[in-house]
Amino acid sequence: MNLIALNPMTLFSALPGNIAQGIIWGIMAVGVYMTFRLLHFSDLTVDGSFATGGAVAVMLIINDVPSPVALLAAFGVGLLAGMVTGILHTAFGIPDILAGILSQIALYSVNLRIMFGKANQAVSVDKYYLLVSLRNIPKSLITGGIFALAIIIVLYWFFGTEKGSAIRATGCNPSMSMAQGININSTKVLTLALSNGLVALSGGLLAQYQGFSDVNMGRGSIVIGLAAVIIGEVLGEALFGKRLNFFGRLLFVVIGGIIYYIVVGVVLWLKMPSNDLKLFTAIIVAVFLAVPYLRAKSQNSYAKAAKKGAK
């Protein structure tokens, strides 16, 4: 690889766009955080509901629905998608990962239907008013930032309420929750619904940003969401340690999304083929998941005990 051929200016000029994309994915990651961290539910619905959000938003906008309303509709359809997964899991006893996969696969067909059988649908920023667009990155940064911040504030409030506390208890200890009168099936369905609502909203934003929705735009989004959650957590805990409260955690999830896209920008700038990006993402997530585990293990290992015991 010829490093001299790399122009630092192209990296810097791409940076704001990467950040804007990172914020949008960060919103998606906040949805993943709700299920993965609070409910301890690995929800794979998101790969489908992310594209659903994009499809709903674009189809409504090109039919002259104002983009904020279209985004709200995307959120609503995402709620329904999450609810389906929740019902498959709670009412029909399907294990969490499988319930998510079933919804995800079903959504692929649903998404094609929404887009009138086409694999992608364009929405031009020249013809319609869009909330975010890669053609207007400063505006996208501001709008995306406002969305992310508003969502974090609302969730911070929500998880402090009685309902939100019940959800946190459900994720932490289902037996205790039932003994305290919490209907854990309904809290699970509610969390999955809200999570996928956010994921779909994020998909609706990304479709506007890139100027089209694509039936495959959600593929692997769970991994990107997890990457953001984990990068944000590692960074937040490194910087703030125990002082990192719930608000900080949510904020760092979005920051994790931004960092992820900056890293992606750098990797692409280094002329890595974009086809290898998903492999790269999977490796990042695997490493970030493995590091805390291995670190704990190295402090508490048989090898270490053997060394000490041999003396």
Partner: peptide, 12 residues
């Protein structure tokens, strides 16, 4: 809050 419906009032 055992036995009460849990709404959007503060959790504590």
């Amino acid at each position: 809050r055992r036995g009460q419906s849990r709404g959007l009032r503060w959790g504590i």
